[in-house]
Amino acid sequence: MMRHRSLFLTILSATIVFGSWEIAGRIPVSFAFPTFLESMTAFWVLVVEGTLFTAYAETLKPLVVGIAISAFLGIGLGLWIGLSEKIDWLISPIFVVMQTAPLAALIPLLVMAYGIGLTSKVFVVCIMAMPVIVLNTSGAVRNTPASLKEMGHAFLGSRRDIILKVILPASSPVIFAGLRLGISAGFIGAILSELKITPTGVGDIITFSRSIADYPTMYAAIMSIILLAVLFLNVLERIEIFLFGGNNKGYVSE
């Protein structure tokens, strides 16, 4: 029953969004704004010709590497920061700066330092994705209920036990929220790097189709990124439910 209803709502909301897109494209609101159906046709052409897959083979490289680094390093650093006030004082400001810095303006510096290859693009993905993962993780770790940590200590848990069996599971909802935000930002970073550094992969499709005023193809490429991001986030949610099933029910301490 609930499943049917949520499926119905999903379809309804998709119909409203894509319907308004179609109408807006037909008015048209702008010469550069194609209709939904035109974009879908262009999408289909990209798929059939295989352009999309060769493009993603290129785009996924900095994206996957950057997100993997951000997730592992980000959670690790966040844990370290959350556990130690000194490390917090030392490292946290870097990530606050990273989060607020105007990235587009920093890209030329990265290119000068690391060239126009994969390294710079991975950096852009990491700068976008890592701060929110680090800051969420450290905040969650620091806010682990004191009595849970005390309990672990009182029942003779080692420091490792308390981190692995108490602090990390207790922080997992906020850590996963950070991962969701970080991964979304990483997607933006991957495309940004392809637009700003060298046009490769999906960034190339966007730049090229814009330059020849093939707007349906450009929008199709943008749509494909959104689609991939949503799929990625859904997989992440499955992982969270698999790992920490009973955790989304909140704390019990009256």
Binding site: P145, S147, E150, P169, A170, F244, G246, V252, S253, E254
Partner: peptide, 14 residues
């Protein structure tokens, strides 16, 4: 020694 906590200190995910 074993401890019983005022706020129970139960693991919500367990």
């Amino acid at each position: 020694r074993a401890f019983v906590f005022q706020d129970f200190a139960l693991l919500p995910w367990a």
